[in-house]
Amino acid sequence: MQLLAFILFSTAVYADEAYNVLLDSMKDKNFVTVERLEQDELQEFCSQPRSASVDQARAAKLREAALKGVLIPKDERYLGDWQLGEKVASNGRGLQYSDDPEQENGGNCYACHQLDPKEVAYGNLGPSLSGYGARGQSAAMLQYTWTKLWNTHAYNVCSHMPRFGAAGILTEKQLQDVMAFLFDPNSPVNRSQP
């Protein structure tokens, strides 16, 4: 019993050490405060090397919680304006202490994904999404993609992708516009030839 208590205590201290070091090593800058160093349960769970063994039961719980938290847009209106969505996808600014907090945040999709095949400056941390609309526009497909954007961990716990909806990085309106950029047949994602 005492041993168990000791092990639990040591684990907590171990997890806290990184936080305490960061707290001592960083300071508020502009609108960015050290509160950002606090981890939620998901962040704490996902702060391990890829090779580390995963607690599958806990992963399933986190996946479920992520899915439950997804807010579906009113009247299931998933698609907005693809031209505005293209701007969100290209904009890498937002939430860095060097950014203007009065400006709207970008989604920075191109940092990690190929989208319009004519855009050559795309990253490859995530899969290519060129021609995404060809995957169909069924209700299930729209809902899946919305969920992926809102909180990627609903499908893939510890994905590298930010929780654009759940973390409040993008607004519902911006997400609808990004959805249109992905799905609209007139969007360069689906129209352009490389």
Binding site: Y19, R36, E38, P49, L95, A167
Partner: peptide, 10 residues
């Protein structure tokens, strides 16, 4: 610290 995820973007 290298693996420590935090902040609005995780």
């Amino acid at each position: 610290l290298f693996y420590y995820r935090a902040g609005p973007h995780d």
